[in-house]
Design a binder for these strands. Structure first.
Lengths: 209, 209
DNA sequence: AATTTGACAATACGATCGCATAGTGAAACG
DNA sequence: CGTTTCACTATGCGATCGTATTGTCAAATT
């Protein structure tokens, strides 16, 4: 493999990633139907036909964009602390706080993820099926497993892990999702770091004994 | 006003309501951009031009549909119990449970409301501005006032009422919103009455002292 | 009974959608 | 250096979008 051989492949990869980043944003903002190949190309400052060239169909572009987004999510997961890493009860509670904070921070820095999640998860269809099979099934399993572990350590209240997971997920992501609304209605920016940390603290305070 | 005078006016009102019900569903399912005048007309089993005749533009139809939806919401609010109606502490806690259950029940029976809320609240724009000014501002004020009252009665943990409101709202509506996803991934129907009541109970248990 | 009103339909307009096809020109290869 | 590969562009197709215009016919008015 010479140096010049990489020139084209490198440029190709750059272009593809540029398109994917634009696609993730547009899909998250507008939803699948309302997003257009043209608007995605415009966001990436490229021609529409180029997007079509690299990703063929709109559905395929959506899938690749989702894969791209989830790959970033998994890099976060690798950095999360684990409950098994610590022993004392105080440390475990602190780990729970760190995990919740990491989740809400990721959600803040990736509003696209929240947007795509909420838009696709709420109505049945082929895209939800694909999303469940390729990403969400595993995510839910990991999530419920974490909840169950935390419960067995006495960190979370009793109850079906799946329900606890949904309650916590909603409590964490909802304030962030409706931040534009809250900002508009009250002038308060709920997406600030202070607000988000406060949200975690309030929630953790609820979850205590 | 004769009998025959009402014939046309009545039919007009029937047609308008038929269109509005269809519009609410379509807008909630697809979002504003993806929803089309044609699909709304088809859902109402009417011609596209008739929809245009009654509501002029798509934006105007959306606003009227939202007004129609909120008018149903307000009939629910009128039936809600109030904290000031009871005196003993046990009764107050029971009222809180009833209020939360009424909210989640309404959300279940009006998925369109949840859909429109989540779709419009998450991204800034002229429609969000309109929604805030005409409905949400008042809703948020009422909500935070209720939270503050419940806090003063020792029913909810301390903290900014707006944040508590968002946390509770998210914890209640999220499980319902992602019910299609949960159903697909685990086979469990989180939108069942039992699951929803359990969600309220779990949440209330968290909110206790 | 003659006339006006208004709920509704038929049709067309320009714009934009996803997608397909035919090039173009520089980088990679033998 | 001649040839092939391929990232990228130009152009156009049929379908559908929101909207405007005009016509129709029964109900309401005078």
């Amino acid at each position: 493999m010479t140096n010049s051989l990489n020139r084209r492949a490198l440029r190709r990869e750059e272009t593809r990633e540029k398109i994917l980043r634009a696609a993730v944003r547009i899909f998250a903002e507008l939803g699948f139907e309302a997003a257009s190949m043209g608007s995605i190309a415009a966001r990436a400052d490229l021609k529409k036909a180029l997007v079509q060239y690299h990703f063929e169909t709109k559905l395929n572009l959506w899938q690749e964009a989702v894969n791209f987004l989830w790959s970033e999510l998994h890099t976060l997961e690798d950095g999360l602390p684990r409950l098994s890493d610590f022993s004392s009860h105080d440390d475990e509670r602190e780990i729970l706080r760190q995990v919740l904070r990491a989740i809400i921070r990721f959600a803040k820095s990736h509003p696209d993820w929240v947007g795509i999640m909420f838009r696709e998860a709420s109505s049945p269809g082929p895209r939800l099926d694909w999303l469940v099979e390729n990403h969400l099934k595993r995510d839910i399993e990991d999530g419920t497993a974490f909840i169950a572990t935390a419960q067995s350590h006495g960190l979370l209240p009793e109850g079906p892990p799946l329900q606890i997971l949904n309650i916590i997920s909603g409590a964490l992501t909802y304030p962030l999702l409706v931040a534009p609304l809250t900002k508009r209605a009250t002038g308060i920016n709920m997406a600030s770091d202070e607000s988000l940390d406060a949200t975690v603290d309030i929630l953790l305070n609820m979850l205590k004994p």
